[in-house]
């Protein structure tokens, strides 16, 4: 019997997932996605959502691209995978109500994929699982209130998990990561 081969789409899904798994295992460390820009968001969507889960995005072109996955488009209150290629201030209300799971099933919570700029802007120091002691990253392009909103929403083990995407780079920010702003 011949060894089965990955289709190009399966390969893209695999590469994307591997980047996400590493990103979440080592918060703050950049991983590389197989696509860049909006296509990077589509790649993450293809890798993670299908007709057995749900998504939300305020971005029309991205919503149109993700329809193909068969996933249900739900409100930010319910959707498990939420994509914000550009996170504006008005979207913070979405994040405020995004699912954080419950104590029996904290995994029933949202995963947020958020566009940003990595390497410039305010510096934050990250600590927690996946980080040896501490790691410093610079993140720009997010509403100023993003970090305080995250801290206010998080009630470990409840909370949402974030992938920060810039071009073809992704950084993972699981709920376990403690973030400190560096002035």
């Amino acid at each position: 019997m011949a060894v089965p081969l990955m289709s190009p789409q399966e390969e893209r899904n695999h590469v994307t997932f591997t980047a996400l798994m590493r990103a979440l295992s080592h918060p703050g460390r950049e991983q590389r996605l197989p696509d860049t820009g909006l296509a990077a968001f589509v790649a993450i969507g293809d890798a993670l959502v299908d007709l057995e889960t749900s998504y939300y995005t305020p971005h029309d072109a991205l919503a149109a691209a993700l329809v193909r996955t068969g996933a249900r488009f739900l409100s930010p209150l319910q959707a498990r995978y939420q994509f914000y290629p550009q996170l504006h201030d008005q979207h913070l209300d979405h994040l405020r109500v995004a699912p954080t799971g419950d104590y029996v099933a904290p995994e029933d919570s949202a995963t947020l994929v958020v566009g940003c700029v990595i390497g410039s802007g305010p510096a934050v120091e990250l600590r927690g699982p996946g980080i040896r002691s501490a790691i410093e990253v610079r993140i720009d392009g997010l509403p100023a209130a993003f970090w305080s909103l995250r801290a206010g929403t998080l009630r470990y083990p409840l909370g949402w998990d974030v992938f920060l995407v810039a071009g073809d780079r992704v950084i993972g920010l699981p709920r376990t990561t403690r973030v400190e702003m560096i002035e």
Partner: peptide
Amino acid sequence: SYAFLDEFAKREVRRRILKAIAIP
């Protein structure tokens, strides 16, 4: 399929793995 499981099955396991890493 590649790796025996179809793409839907793999995607489901992958989604769970990511949540598992986020809640050690």
